[in-house]
């Protein structure tokens, strides 16, 4: 067990964990931030996507040792009241079915739009193709992205 410092959703945290513990399980089991989901554990599906130092990462494959001292944003920290324009766009398009993959998609979308507020359809496809939605909400994700881009440009 070692001790690590992290800034999670703007709050300073000191946690103790084995250095190889993936950030995913630190967030979920230790910090109680369960919006970040486990679905493959191998960096294949994007359900565990969070933002670390401004970049989207798969938290299931990033060890807490490597994440130490970083600034982490999870779905819970995206906005105060769940009203980030991307979240609002997701609601307007009534995207989720089971909902399990959605925080991961929203975080990937957040990463894309913060770097590129006007992505082409191809750029959206490329970035969001790193995530899997088993229920097949993809058409509505596309729609929500269009709404979010439009709102971002106003």
């Amino acid at each position: 067990m070692s001790s690590f410092k992290l800034i999670v959703n703007k709050e300073k945290k000191t946690i103790s964990a084995d250095p190889d513990t993936p950030l995913l399980w630190v967030l979920r089991d230790i910090l109680g931030l369960t919006g970040t989901k486990y679905a493959c554990g191998k960096g294949l599906c994007g359900s565990c996507t969070v933002i670390v130092n401004g970049k989207s990462v798969r938290s299931c494959t990033l060890s807490v040792a490597d994440a130490a001292q970083s600034e982490v944003i999870t779905i819970e920290g995206l906005s105060e009241k769940g009203d980030h324009p991307i979240q609002k766009a997701w609601m307007e398009a009534d995207v989720p079915q089971c909902g399990y993959c959605q925080p991961g998609f929203i975080m990937s979308a957040f990463d894309l739009l913060s770097k590129n507020p006007n992505p082409t359809e191809e750029e959206v496809n490329n970035v969001l193709s790193g995530n899997i939605c088993r229920c097949g909400t993809y058409s509505r994700i596309r729609k929500a992205m269009q709404i979010a881009v439009k709102v971002g440009n106003q």
């Binding site: 369960t34 486990y38 009241k81 979240q87 989720p96 909902g99 399990y100």
Partner: peptide
């Protein structure tokens, strides 16, 4: 009439709890 699903806001803010999230 089209109706957004009841858990929608809690799904997009990450607070909805599946069994795997409970402690």
């Amino acid at each position: 009439k089209p109706c957004p699903q009841v858990d929608l806001d809690n799904i997009v803010n990450g607070s909805v709890q599946y069994t795997i999230d409970l402690k």
